[in-house]
Amino acid sequence: MIKVSVMYPNSSDAKFDMDYYNSTHAQLVLDRLGDTLKSFTVDAGIAGGAPGEAAGFIAMGHLIFDSVDAFEAAFGPHADELLGDIPNFTNVQPQVQISEIKR
């Protein structure tokens, strides 16, 4: 199993519409990726590791797939639409990481 993490870095000039992301964009992701997507969670950053420290990321989406090939096959045909929706909820360039789930 793999996890695709889409992370939106926090900064003083970052704008992020969590309501849109959590409802409209997340639903678009679910609709387009279908049953190939095994699990999808949305996290909202609330704090950093030290008291009073801001969260390093405004939000993160975590998508679980059986394999990198399964992710690529599901995401590829919809990449333009999904990536094109990003400006509708943020001015932040997301960071993406693909990880192998070990436990």
Rank of each mutant, 00 (worst) to 15 (best):
G61Y: 00
G45Q: 08
D80S: 12
V29T: 13
S5A: 15
V29E: 03
F65K: 10
T90A: 05
F65G: 02
P9Y: 03
D13R: 04
A54K: 15
S11H: 12
G61M: 02
S99T: 05
N10Y: 04
I64R: 06
D85C: 05
A55M: 02
L30H: 04
I2E: 06
H78P: 02
D43F: 07
N10R: 04
M1P: 07
G76Q: 09
D43T: 12
S67W: 06
Q93P: 00
G49P: 01
I101C: 10
T36D: 03
E72V: 14
D66K: 07
F16N: 03
A70V: 07
D69E: 15
L30W: 01
K38D: 08
D69G: 05
D31G: 01
M7R: 14
V68R: 01
G52L: 09
G84L: 08
A26D: 00
E53S: 11
G49Q: 09
R32I: 04
Q27H: 11
A14E: 05
A59V: 07
D69H: 05
A44Q: 15
A26F: 07
V4F: 03
K38I: 12
T24D: 07
V6T: 12
G48C: 10
V68D: 01
K102Y: 11
I86S: 02
P94K: 12
V29A: 14
T41R: 13
M7S: 14
S11K: 08
P94G: 11
A54I: 00
T41V: 15
D35Q: 13
Q97H: 06
S23K: 13
D69S: 12
G84R: 10
P51R: 11
Q95T: 14
A14H: 09
R103K: 13
S39P: 00
Q27A: 07
D85L: 08
A79C: 09
V6L: 13
V29C: 10
Q27D: 13
A55Q: 02
P87I: 04
T24H: 11
M1H: 09
T90Q: 05
K3H: 08
D17A: 02
S5E: 08
A50P: 00
P9T: 06
A44G: 04
M7C: 14
S11D: 09
K15M: 08
A47M: 12
I58W: 00
E72S: 14
A54P: 01
V6I: 15
Q27M: 11
G49H: 08
L30K: 14
G56T: 08
I64L: 08
S11T: 12
A59R: 03
S99M: 05
G48F: 04
A73D: 10
H25L: 04
I58D: 01
G76P: 06
A14Q: 06
E53W: 01
N22D: 13
F65T: 03
A59S: 15
A47L: 05
A55C: 07
T36I: 03
A73F: 02
D85I: 06
A50G: 02
F89G: 01
H78D: 04
K3I: 12
D31V: 00
P51G: 11
T36W: 02
K15Q: 11
S99D: 07
P51H: 11
F40I: 10
P9W: 02
F65S: 07
L83V: 14
